[in-house]
C-alpha cells in the first residue's frame, strides 16, 4: 500500500505527482488550473470570508469523512451568514504514513461535495509532517461568498420571532462517537454532514432575521450566544425538538443531552412570526429540510436566558455548558 512520505511535501517530484494525480484530477477547474501563486477570481462589492480547520477522528464515519466535513463546514458558515458560497481554498496537513488510497477517497469526496454545493476549490496547499506530529490528516478551508442579500444579523432578533431548525439534532456527534468508540446502538445514526447553501437559498426570504449552524456545543450553546448577542430570552419546547430515535437512545444510555451535541448539516433560523409558516413549508419541500421544525420562540426576559419547556409544562435553564455534565443527584 502506498503511503504519504515526507517527500510528498518537499515541493519536489513527489509533490508534483500528488498535485497532478490527485488534486488536479479531482478538483481541477479554470481557477485551480491557473497554477499561479495566487488565483484571480471574479468578485463584487460585498464579500463574505470565513475559515475553519478540521480535525476529526475517525477520518471516515457513517455519513461522511473529513473531506466532506471540510467543505460543508466552511460552506455552511458562509451560507448561514446569508452569503452565497463561491470559492474555497484547501490546505492539507498530512501525517507521514497516511495511506494514499485514503487521501484519494477524501479528495474525491471534497470534489463531490464541492460540486454538490456548487462551489470551486480555487487554491490549495499540502504539507507533510513527521509521524506523530499530526493525527493522519488535518484540513483547513477558507471560503469566499457573495454577500448580495440583505444582511442577517442578531441585532434584528425580537421577542415573538420563531426559532426554527432545519432538521434533526445531534446526528453528527452521535455518528462520530459511535464510529470512534465502536458503540453499537440499537438504531445506528448517520452524520448529517451536508452543504446547506441550496436549502438556505430555497427558503431565504424577507423575514429571515438570523441564521447559525449549531456545530460544536450544539443547539444549546449556539442559542445562548445568539440570545446574548441579541439581548433577548428564548423559550424552547422539548416536544418540538426533532430528534432521531437513535440519537435519543444513545443519549439516554450515555447521559448526553442532544441539545449540546454537534451538528454539521443543520441551521438554526430565526424568523419573524408572520414568516414562520411559509419558511417552514419551503424547508419541508427540500430534501435536507424535511424534518425542519419550529423549536421555540424569542421572548422578553433576561438577556441571554435560554429556557426549555418540558412536556409537563415546567421549564429548565439551558445554559452554556462548562466542560461535561457532571452528576448532580445527591
Amino acid at each position: 500500500m502506498e503511503r504519504i512520505m515526507m517527500a510528498h511535501g518537499s515541493g519536489g517530484r513527489l509533490s508534483h505527482e500528488l498535485i497532478h494525480s490527485l488534486f488536479q484530477k479531482y478538483l481541477g477547474n479554470s481557477f485551480l488550473d491557473q497554477m499561479n501563486d495566487a488565483t484571480i477570481v471574479p468578485g463584487q462589492e460585498q464579500l463574505a470570508v470565513t475559515t475553519d480547520s478540521f480535525v476529526v477522528s475517525p477520518l471516515f464515519f457513517r455519513g461522511g469523512n473529513i473531506g466532506r466535513l471540510a467543505v460543508c463546514g466552511t460552506v455552511n458558515d458562509l451560507a448561514v451568514s446569508g452569503a452565497a458560497p463561491k470559492f474555497l481554498s484547501l490546505a492539507l496537513i498530512l501525517e507521514e504514513g497516511l495511506p494514499l488510497e485514503e487521501l484519494e477517497r477524501i479528495i474525491q469526496s471534497v470534489a463531490d461535495t464541492a460540486k454538490e454545493a456548487g462551489i470551486s476549490i480555487v487554491c490549495g496547499d499540502t504539507k507533510v509532517v513527521e509521524r506523530g506530529s499530526a493525527d493522519k490528516l488535518f484540513i483547513n478551508t477558507t471560503g469566499i461568498g457573495y454577500s448580495n442579500r440583505y444582511f442577517v444579523n442578531p441585532q434584528q432578533i425580537q421577542p415573538g420571532d420563531g426559532i426554527l431548525i432545519t432538521g434533526t439534532i445531534g446526528d453528527h456527534e452521535i455518528a462520530i462517537l459511535s464510529d470512534r468508540e465502536g458503540l453499537e446502538f440499537e438504531t445506528p445514526v448517520t452524520s448529517d454532514c451536508a452543504p446547506l447553501n441550496g436549502l438556505i437559498d430555497s427558503f431565504f426570504q424577507v423575514g429571515v432575521k438570523c441564521m447559525r449552524d449549531p456545530t460544536r456545543g450544539g443547539v444549546a450553546t449556539t442559542l445562548n450566544e445568539l440570545a446574548q448577542q441579541a439581548g433577548v430570552s428564548m423559550l424552547l419546547k422539548e416536544e418540538s425538538l426533532p430528534i432521531l430515535p437513535g440519537v435519543k437512545g444513545a443519549c439516554d444510555m450515555l447521559g448526553l443531552d442532544p441539545l449540546y451535541l454537534a451538528n454539521e448539516g443543520k441551521a438554526l433560523v430565526i424568523v419573524k412570526p408572520e414568516a414562520v409558516e411559509s419558511v417552514l413549508q419551503v424547508m419541508h419541500a427540500h430534501p435536507l429540510g424535511h424534518r425542519a421544525a419550529q423549536i421555540g420562540v424569542v421572548q422578553e426576559g433576561k438577556p441571554g436566558l435560554v429556557l426549555l419547556e418540558t412536556p409537563l409544562g415546567g421549564k429548565r435553564i439551558v445554559g452554556m455548558l462548562e466542560g461535561e455534565h457532571l452528576p448532580r443527584i445527591c
Partner: peptide, 17 residues
C-alpha cells in the same frame, strides 16, 4: 445491546464518572 455498550463505555472510558 445495552450490555455491549456498557462494556465499551467501561473499556474506553466513555461518559464514565
Amino acid at each position: 445491546n445495552e450490555r455491549k455498550i456498557l462494556d465499551r463505555q467501561l473499556e474506553k472510558d466513555i461518559q464514565i464518572f
